[in-house]
């Protein structure tokens, strides 16, 4: 992992390129100790909060994944050590692998749609007039601010079999006969609805963050590129994208992490009783933990989920770590 930079931990990224010897010497002598300690001091409060709250529960979670931890053990606060049996039973479960596959595919679709649509809307915000922009951003925040439980209820109504606006509108628009159409009878259309719901809910965050990032891009650079005769797409690719890369990397990895854990939308929409066609990994883990009361198994699934997500975000993770070094 990272070592101390040769010239000492003091040199800031910007500084190291900015070699004014005298300036540097002065700083070394005056602030040397302070500079070594500085990053740790800056990091300490956040690290302390996360450490104090999460260290023990994380340890407990991993430990539980090696234990038989059912309701009986839960009440007595004592699991029974069973080695890797929980993991073995997960990996030998054909259902589990179907769930994994389903979750991966679903995440991939949701993340790509979210990123593309979110970025498109952020770019659109730059093009529209002020009134439209404020309306649109406020609209995005409205969507974002809707509590998930309420949003899911609203969507459930919109696609309701009997009273849904979706069926009514599609029928009126002559897309086909959608009177009493049951979107969840077929898992494909069911997941179609979930994809829309999740992408719809995730767009505001991506769009607003990307837009915030776009506001950071110096106008001079864009103008210079335009004067050079670059077409808008080229400007975006050559100027904007590289500058916003750290933000895109973050957004993509976060979207992967969040969509991989999708739970509440499916859970609430299907009345807390999704049929097994609709299990995603998070639902599977919750089901094993709280419905079957096999907390050990649930913990093991959670651990496996984390490993999968690390694998899925590895590319981004490396990019991200590199992003810090480039300067």
């Amino acid at each position: 992992m990272s070592r101390l930079a040769p010239e000492g931990a003091v040199a800031s990224v910007a500084e190291s390129e900015f070699t004014l010897a005298s300036r540097r010497r002065r700083r070394f002598t005056r602030h040397r100790l302070g500079h070594i300690a500085a990053p740790y001091a800056l990091l300490a409060p956040a690290a302390a909060v996360i450490g104090v709250i999460l260290a023990y529960p994380m340890y407990q979670l991993v430990r539980m994944s090696f234990q038989k931890y059912g309701l009986f053990e839960l009440i007595r606060h004592k699991g029974r050590w069973i080695g890797t049996a929980n993991y073995a039973s997960i990996f030998n479960d054909a259902e589990f692998w179907r769930v994994v596959l389903r979750t991966v595919a679903f995440t991939a679709v949701c993340v790509s749609l979210t990123m593309v649509a979110g970025t498109a809307i952020a770019l659109l915000l730059l093009q529209v007039s002020r009134v439209v922009r404020i309306a649109l951003t406020t609209g995005l925040v409205l969507v974002w601010s809707m509590p998930v439980i309420v949003a899911v209820d609203i969507w459930r109504w919109m696609v309701d079999y009997e009273f849904g606006v979706a069926n009514w509108t599609l029928t009126k628009l002559h897309v086909g006969n959608f009177v009493r159409h049951d979107w969840f009878a077929n898992p494909w259309t069911g997941f179609g609805v979930f994809t829309l719901l999740i992408v719809w809910g995730a767009i505001p965050f991506v769009a607003i963050t990307v837009y915030a990032g776009l506001a950071q891009v110096p106008q001079e650079l864009l103008e210079a590129a335009e004067i050079d005769g670059a077409r808008p797409w080229a400007v975006f690719r050559e100027v904007t994208l590289p500058l916003l890369k750290p933000i895109f990397v973050i957004l993509t990895s976060l979207s992967i992490i969040w969509d991989f854990q999708v739970f509440q939308q499916i859970w609430v929409m299907l009345d807390a009783r999704p049929t097994s066609d609709y299990y995603t990994m998070a639902i599977y883990a919750f089901h094993q933990s709280f419905q079957i009361s096999e907390y050990g198994l649930g913990a093991a699934i959670a651990v496996v989920m984390v490993l999968f997500m690390f694998a899925a975000t590895l590319v981004y993770l490396r990019q991200m770590l590199k992003a810090g070094e480039v300067h």
Binding site: S2, I50, M58, F260
Partner: peptide, 28 residues
């Protein structure tokens, strides 16, 4: 600290902070 300094433990911290978000809440 993470963006402007290089120091020992920077990378593990970045990775840790990513990992924290990956643990499903229900399991915690």
């Amino acid at each position: 600290a993470l963006a402007k300094f290089r120091f020992y433990g920077r990378r593990p911290f970045i990775v840790l902070i990513l990992g924290v978000q990956m643990v499903p809440l229900a399991a915690l």
